[in-house]
Design a protein around this nucleic acid. Structure first.
Length: 194
DNA sequence: ACCGGGATGTTCT
DNA sequence: GAACATCCCGGTG
């Protein structure tokens, strides 16, 4: 029993949205996983954001409607997925960094050939995408609509009342901003541990 | 455990 | 031509 998150849930500041996404469930046609680590990216105000220098063909969806997926390709081999926040015209997004696998786990091991343990399946933004079969085809997809079997859902598990919080990972600008959140004590988070 | 380097190609300067 | 919201492997301690 779970309910799909709607537009209103996503249409606010990434800093408010990000911690509220903890313990929500992401569902794709090949499986599902509980989100345990996220990062906020605050558009044109945030030197660490892809949208900092204004819209480009790549970042167009970050400026669009809340609840769409922003999926980008990086380091020549990896996909990473964000949920778009804010209202149309204002860029903002939450990077999905790590999750605990729930269903479709056999398939996750097949796609994540190097993984030997459950907490190696979704413990990083690119691992999560590979495990759940998310790639560039998912860019711009609307999570708040029917969306080809893709959604983020509330199954009744609340976000942690005291999430772990710290600096974001892998940036050269905006490194100081504490806009990374995680569920404390879970094994499926990315490195470095909060 | 922690650290350093290589892979690999798109995006933007 | 440089940078890149990463991952994996092999070194060392």
């Amino acid at each position: 029993m779970s309910r799909r998150l709607g537009r209103r849930f996503f249409a606010r500041s990434p800093i408010e949205l990000a911690p509220d996404l903890l313990n929500k469930v992401i569902v794709t046609p090949v499986g599902s996983a509980r989100l345990v680590e996220v990062e906020a990216y605050c558009g044109t105000d945030d030197p660490g954001s892809h949208a900092y220098r204004g819209p480009t063909p790549r970042t167009e969806v970050m400026f669009g409607r809340a609840g769409h997926l922003y999926v980008y390709f990086t380091y020549g081999m990896h996909w990473c997925a964000n949920v778009v926040a804010e209202h149309q015209g204002t860029a903002g997004a939450v990077l999905l960094r790590a999750a605990t696998p729930l269903t479709g786990i056999d398939g996750m091991y097949e796609r994540r050939v190097k993984a030997n343990r459950p907490h190696d399946l979704c413990s990083g933004p690119a691992k999560l995408c590979q495990a759940l079969g998310i790639d560039g085809e998912y860019n711009g997809l609307d999570l708040a609509a029917s969306a080809f079997g893709v959604s983020i859902r509330d199954d009744g598990t609340p976000p942690p009342s005291r999430p772990a919080q710290g600096a974001r990972v892998g940036l050269s600008r905006g490194v100081d901003l504490p806009w990374r959140w995680a569920v404390p004590g879970v094994k499926d988070v990315s490195r470095p541990r909060l």
